[in-house]
Nucleic acid binder design. Structure first.
Lengths: 147, 147
DNA sequence: ATTAAAAGTTAGCCGATGCTAAATTGATTT
DNA sequence: AAATCAATTTAGCATCGGCTAACTTTTAAT
């Protein structure tokens, strides 16, 4: 009963990597809307200069990226003004914030320190399926109850 | 004594994202050397056509990527021949295989099914710190002992 | 009100990673 | 041996996400 199990282990390589590439394509967008939402909460508005500083990129790069996000309907902006999330952008930001927190809390529940949990969560959050997120959440919850 | 804790929670955004971008830059390289090593084990050699099929990209893309890997010292190849790992490539492949297995086993230990564990591991493996890997490994081990 | 500083924008560049289409080489079949 | 078929390579293109340098606009100070 061990041999082939439920799922053929070979076949689906290509699909795995296709989904991986899709995830990558969304990462910058997700990081930006998440950060813009944070900045609006923390500083009252999202300025390009703050995004540049937080991401560690140049203002020109931020400008570039914001244009893509605008094209894709996640943010709105007017020249020399601060940046706003559209409804779609806000929805995405909310989803990302939740997901980020689930991953972060899970890593903390595993015993990792805040610095490492924060850094790893930033990388991991874009690559967890809904199923894995559920398991993470349940684990964190149960580990809290078990004290 | 609680306020600032050991690590200021704000400041280091930029460094986090810089490290994230570094990790991204390594992902394709790591996936390729890992896959080349797998192919050599499974099929006796690594052909471009197999890489193309497994990654779900065109042969032209594989060719491109192999040239970069060659430039960076991870593989060697001669025209119309199969692809070999250099020592550096083999070392990296071994490291990646270990890491991949740790992440995969951890997800399985958490109760996820093989298909999802495999897919998520592929995304997560490039973004786990050494500390997190240690915790994953310890968790998997202890969960095996606890049956 | 002018000037200086800060913020934002534009133009032009580069590398990574993908593609298609066409040419080439290698392997197989007849 | 020739012809075919599969694999590989080349050329040319696109997008993303970075950069620098130069310029413009806005904001703040004097």
């Amino acid at each position: 009963m061990a041999g082939g199990a439920a799922l053929p282990p070979k076949e689906n390589h290509a699909e795995t990597f296709a989904r991986l590439r899709d995830a990558h394509a969304r990462e910058v967008t997700e990081d930006y809307v998440e950060m813009i939402a944070d900045l609006i909460v923390e500083e009252g508005e999202a300025r390009a200069v703050s995004l540049a500083e937080r991401f560690g990129v140049t203002p020109a790069t931020v400008n570039n990226t914001i244009k893509r996000l605008e094209r894709d309907g996640f943010v709105s902006s007017r020249p020399y003004r601060s940046i706003f999330l559209t409804d779609a952008g806000q929805t995405l930001a909310d989803k990302c914030r939740d997901r980020h927190k689930i991953v972060y809390d899970f890593l903390i529940a595993l015993g990792l320190d805040a610095q490492i949990a924060e850094f790893d969560a930033e990388g991991i959050e874009h690559h967890v399926s809904a199923e894995t997120l559920d398991v993470f959440r349940a684990f964190t919850k149960s580990s809290k109850g078990e004290i």
